[in-house]
Simulated assay, not measured.
Amino acid sequence: MVQLQHGFAEYSERFVDQYSRLVPRLLESGIEVWAMDLLGHGRSPGRRGVVDVRRAVEDHVTVRRDMLARSLPLLAIGHSLGGLVTAGSITADETGVSGTVLLAPALPPHLPTPARALLGLATRLLPAAPAPLPAAPSAELTRRPDVVRQAQQDALMAHVRLPLLVATSSLDVAAAVWSGASRWQAPCLIAHGTADTSTDPRASPRLAGLLTAPGSSYLPVQGGRHELLHDDDAEMVFGHVRAFVGRHLGLGPSRMRRL
């Protein structure tokens, strides 16, 4: 099984006909895929784009516990904000996880206490207000203009700036990840494009440097943008994901060929 988590402003179904058709290719190889739309995203209820990432981590752990009742090998994949949710979930409870893939994960650094307190106060007053952060243009998410146009016209996308609640709760989850990643027992593959303007590509090698589980690795994608699985190097990145998934879910050669 694979537990798949989408990123900010998008939704799980994008991984069906976009993102290198990740979901169909997993299904075709006999891998069961579970994916949830974050609150405020896709087909989930809530104000568009507004989600408490701490709550998302709790929901992610709950979904995985339901998956583990199937008694099958399980691997977690998260993209962007979904990478942070996945990392936070693994930090909170790694039970039953055979491996983790983080694609362009959002990994904000520690914020000084006074600034964090001020941000927290603003969030309590106006949780849906835009965070005081530069917004990456949608045209920079990928080098493929067709994918950019499709996202801009997609009614299920949340076309909003990053809300304060997402920003502040991301800081809390990231703090737990930075302090707990060295204790992860399952291997992790982290991939990040060096030209990503949505999440910090410098944070991924720092996180990779904390990992001690054998088989963990960091894949820098030179010139890669944020949405790696439908950027110019999508098939190369998918090849690394496929090899990692096959290795850590114990897929035989015939199922690897289908994947």
Rank of each mutant, 00 (worst) to 15 (best):
M1L: 13
M1S: 15
M1V: 13
V2H: 05
Q3F: 13
L4S: 08
Q5P: 00
G7L: 04
F8R: 06
Y11Q: 03
F15M: 12
Y19V: 01
R21H: 12
P24V: 05
R25K: 15
E28G: 15
S29F: 00
W34L: 12
L39G: 04
L39Y: 06
G40S: 08
R43C: 11
G46R: 09
G49L: 13
V51W: 00
R54L: 07
A56D: 07
D59W: 09
H60Y: 14
V63G: 10
M67W: 11
L68G: 10
S71L: 05
G82A: 08
V85W: 06
T86F: 12
G88I: 09
D93K: 14
S98C: 14
S98H: 15
G99R: 15
T100E: 00
L102E: 07
A104P: 12
P105H: 09
A106I: 00
H110S: 11
P114Y: 06
R116C: 02
L119E: 11
L119D: 04
L121T: 09
L125H: 06
A129F: 05
P130S: 12
A131T: 07
P134Q: 10
P134R: 14
P134H: 09
A135G: 07
A136R: 13
A136D: 11
S138A: 13
E140W: 12
E140F: 06
R143K: 11
R144G: 02
Q153D: 13
Q153V: 00
M157V: 15
V160L: 07
V160C: 04
R161H: 09
R161N: 08
P163F: 07
P163Y: 10
P163I: 03
A167H: 15
S170Y: 09
V173G: 06
V173R: 11
A176R: 15
G180F: 03
I190T: 05
A191R: 06
A195N: 11
A195K: 08
T197E: 05
S198M: 11
T199H: 05
R206A: 09
R206K: 13
T212K: 12
P214L: 04
P214F: 04
G215H: 10
S216L: 10
S217K: 08
Y218A: 05
Y218L: 08
Y218G: 10
P220H: 09
H226W: 00
H226V: 11
D232C: 03
E235P: 02
E235G: 02
E235V: 01
F238Y: 15
A243K: 05
A243C: 03
F244Y: 08
G246R: 00
G246F: 03
H248I: 00
H248Q: 01
G250Q: 02
G252L: 01
S254I: 00
R255I: 01
M256L: 14
R257S: 08
L259W: 02
